[in-house]
Amino acid sequence: MTLRPFAAAFTAVAALSACAPVQVLNGLVPTDTYRFQGGIAYGNAPHQRLDVYQPLAIVSPVRGARPLVVFFFGGTWSSGDRASYRFVGEALAARGAAVVVPDYGLSPAFTYPAFVRDSALAVKWALDNADRLGADPKQVYVMGHSSGGYNAAMVALDARWLGEVGASPQQLAGWIGLAGPYDFLPIGDPQAQRAFRWPDTPRDSQPLAHVSAASPPALLMAASTDTLVDPDRNTRRMADALRAAGVPVEVRTFDNLSHVTLIAAFGKPLRWLGGPVLPPVMDFLGLGAVPSHR
């Protein structure tokens, strides 16, 4: 690595560690490795918009149609936006997956279960439009980081939300949780308290309560020393519950990553940080043998 890219990457890590917006990575990732459609409505509300990242024609899966991933960003259900996660859309699209990144209602204007309902509606849009995006409707996955991992888990595990929009978790090929909170009552974080109207938070708001033999296969990833979302209470316990129900689950933990850099390492400038985060995801999507466009 030359000095200039290393310095830029180091600066990005420092900024992310200081809780600067994750869009610091977007100026450092390629712009010519995917096709982009932005600001597509998936519902009638102003915030119900999504961006689509499609692979270039030269990137194609080994067999059949490509998978489609719906990615939900994190931010304690109170911050973040779809535009900040171009580095995630690019990383997956450059390797053969179609990617949908939706916005969803944020606290304090929106509280549970509004953001879960938005997430389900965005997934319904993806299921309905997969074929038009060159993806296989039977290979739709949900994926999220931190509070976005919660959204993904709830859509995948609690059939109420997709059921409300005329779909079902049975239509999902799997779900990917990155440092997601899956069992966090009682709530101590003030932002999360507002998002879930603590202490009036229903027990069935917790993803762990909805694991069953019908749950989709899962890939769970976490930083082993995560100080924001306890990987033992959340990732390990979710994996144990899925296994006990007979659901296929793979777990990857990373000793050299943190809660923030687990997702930041999807960006090209930071993939050297401390663990191959992309290969397990691409293997789970069935694209492990597909070369990147770059």
Score class of each variant (00 low, 15 high):
3 L>M: 09
6 F>W: 14
8 A>Y: 14
10 F>P: 01
13 V>W: 10
16 L>R: 05
16 L>P: 02
17 S>Y: 08
23 Q>W: 11
23 Q>A: 11
23 Q>H: 13
24 V>S: 08
24 V>P: 04
27 G>A: 15
28 L>A: 14
30 P>W: 06
31 T>F: 04
40 I>Y: 08
40 I>S: 09
43 G>P: 08
58 I>F: 09
61 P>D: 05
61 P>I: 04
63 R>A: 15
63 R>K: 15
65 A>H: 12
66 R>W: 06
72 F>C: 06
79 S>D: 11
85 Y>N: 00
86 R>M: 05
87 F>N: 10
87 F>I: 06
88 V>P: 05
95 R>E: 02
96 G>L: 00
100 V>Q: 07
101 V>N: 07
104 Y>M: 04
105 G>Y: 05
105 G>V: 01
105 G>N: 01
107 S>V: 00
108 P>A: 09
109 A>T: 13
118 D>H: 10
120 A>R: 03
126 A>F: 03
129 N>P: 03
136 D>Q: 03
138 K>P: 00
139 Q>Y: 04
139 Q>P: 02
148 G>P: 07
149 G>L: 03
149 G>C: 01
149 G>N: 02
150 Y>Q: 08
158 D>A: 10
160 R>A: 08
161 W>D: 08
162 L>H: 09
163 G>I: 01
170 Q>M: 05
174 G>I: 02
182 Y>E: 04
190 P>V: 07
191 Q>Y: 14
192 A>R: 13
200 D>Y: 13
202 P>E: 10
209 A>V: 02
212 S>V: 01
219 L>Q: 03
219 L>S: 04
221 M>R: 09
229 V>W: 10
235 T>E: 11
238 M>Y: 10
240 D>F: 05
241 A>L: 03
245 A>N: 10
248 P>Y: 13
248 P>V: 06
252 R>N: 11
260 V>G: 11
265 A>K: 12
266 F>H: 13
268 K>P: 12
269 P>G: 08
278 L>N: 09
283 D>Q: 14
283 D>K: 13
288 G>S: 11
289 A>T: 13
